[in-house]
């Protein structure tokens, strides 16, 4: 589904990603871990097409198509979803209005008619239940005044609504208490199937107890320096990142 080859990217002439290789197949859950500043969030943003980052070398294929020249919304239309580490506030635009716009724009891109209001409401109700989201919440301005947990839950709610092929969850566990973490993880697990894939980006192993990855990669200084199974995550939790740094530096 996603195939990244020798990806190099920089922001303001500062090189951050220095040769990433990664392949994610349908049905898989991958986790990318690494110390602060290793380039985890940059990788997520580059896949989603954030224009502040310049891809200096390498390729990103999504479903066999080179998406490097695609606008962020085109990538979204193709099924790439990024759950933001810091979701942005848009005053005056309700969650419902925003979702309606997002869904209909995606449908328009696929040559479909707008979703009938009745179906939309049904879908919203269904997915809100899944994420244990209160109805009142849906009429609030997007992310404005939301708590950290509400913002993250809202991100997963949007993911549920948009049903992406690839969901990239960037530090979705940060700022969540244990109940919120359970709800979010539960939502992700219920949405998971053999045709879609999840890329988890996290600093801690905690989330991986709830969403169990098939593969774990360690990102350090812009490169994947180690890959393994979920056991690697436990090892990192126990021993920290220093041993990896040493291993790499030697």
């Amino acid at each position: 589904m996603l195939k990244i080859k020798n990806l190099h990217a920089s922001v303001a002439d500062k090189s951050i990603l220095r040769g990433i290789n990664l392949e994610i197949k349908p049905g898989e859950v991958h986790a990318i871990m690494g110390p602060n500043g290793s380039g985890k969030s940059t990788l997520a943003s580059v896949i989603a097409g954030k224009e502040d980052y310049e891809v200096t070398d390498g390729e990103i294929f999504f479903e066999g198509e080179d998406i490097n020249e695609f606008a962020p919304e085109e990538r979204a239309h193709k099924g790439v979803f990024l759950s933001f580490q810091y979701p942005v506030e848009i005053p005056g635009v309700s969650v419902t209005n925003f979702m309606k716009t997002a869904i209909n724009e995606t449908r328009k891109a696929k040559g479909l008619e707008d979703m009938p209001a009745k179906d939309m409401l049904k879908l919203i109700r269904e997915k809100a239940e899944l994420l244990e989201i209160d109805r009142k919440f849906l009429s609030r301005s997007l992310n404005e005044g939301f708590s950290g947990g509400e913002k993250k839950r809202n991100e997963i709610f949007q993911m549920a609504m948009l049903e992406p092929k690839l969901a990239i969850l960037d530090e979705t566990d940060s700022g969540l208490d244990i109940d919120a973490l359970r709800i979010v993880a539960n939502g992700v697990n219920k949405l998971k199937n053999k045709d879609n894939a999840v890329l988890l980006i996290t600093h801690y192993q905690r989330l991986l107890d709830y969403i169990v990855p098939d593969y774990v990669h360690v990102l350090y200084k812009g490169k994947i320096v180690k890959s393994g199974t979920k056991e690697l995550a436990h090892e990192l939790e126990a021993k920290g990142y220093d041993w990896i740094k040493e291993e790499v530096n030697i």
Binding site: K50, R75, L82, F84, V88, F98, T101, A102, A109, L162
Partner: peptide
């Protein structure tokens, strides 16, 4: 960018 990422 946030809107773009949601397909808008």
């Amino acid at each position: 960018f946030y809107c773009n990422q949601r397909g808008i």
